[in-house]
Simulated scan of single mutants.
Amino acid sequence: MRIAEILNTKGSSVTTVGPDLDIRSLLALLTEHNIGAVVVSPDGSRITGIVSERDIVRALHLHGAALLDSPVSRIMTTEVRTCSPDDHVDGLRRVMTDHRVRHLPVVVDGRLTGIVSIGDVVKSAISELKTEREQLVEYLQGGY
């Protein structure tokens, strides 16, 4: 399965924030949208970073509550791993596991076009396994 198929199912909407947004407002946005990460972008298209719940928790531990009034740019990850709609889910699973990331922005020609989470990847794997199981059961029952 390709990433494009996941985006066709879940949609290509991505929540982005500017690098100057304060972390307190970021927390409200994550809660409001029930998401675990946002892409940091000055224009909603170019990626300058990504911030996850994990980034916030680690930064709060190091810097304390005063961090909440700091800009997102202070804690964002600037080396953002991305994928394309043509990438295969199997490869993405390896990237996410090897690099311990849970969210990968989808990029086409340098422009943000979607985001895929580890949940999306797991859901697609379960769907593929279910389809294979159904085909095997049908085969074993003489359906071919």
Score class of each variant (00 low, 15 high):
N8W: 05
G11E: 05
S12W: 01
S12Q: 09
S13V: 15
V14C: 03
T16R: 00
V17Q: 02
V17W: 00
G18Q: 02
L21D: 04
D22T: 09
I23W: 01
R24A: 00
L27W: 06
L27V: 14
A28R: 06
L29K: 02
L30V: 15
L30G: 14
L30P: 04
T31D: 11
E32V: 02
I35C: 10
V39R: 03
V40K: 00
D43W: 08
G44V: 00
R46G: 11
G49S: 01
G49P: 11
V51W: 06
V51D: 03
R54A: 13
L62I: 12
G64Q: 03
G64D: 04
A66W: 01
D69C: 07
P71R: 02
V72F: 11
R74V: 13
I75G: 09
T77R: 13
P85I: 08
H88R: 08
R93L: 15
R94A: 12
V95Y: 08
H99F: 10
R100L: 11
V101N: 10
L104M: 08
P105C: 11
P105G: 07
V108C: 07
V108F: 03
R111C: 01
L112T: 03
T113M: 08
V116G: 10
S117I: 06
I118R: 07
G119L: 01
V121Y: 05
V122W: 10
V122S: 07
A125K: 04
A125R: 03
Y139R: 11
Y139N: 08
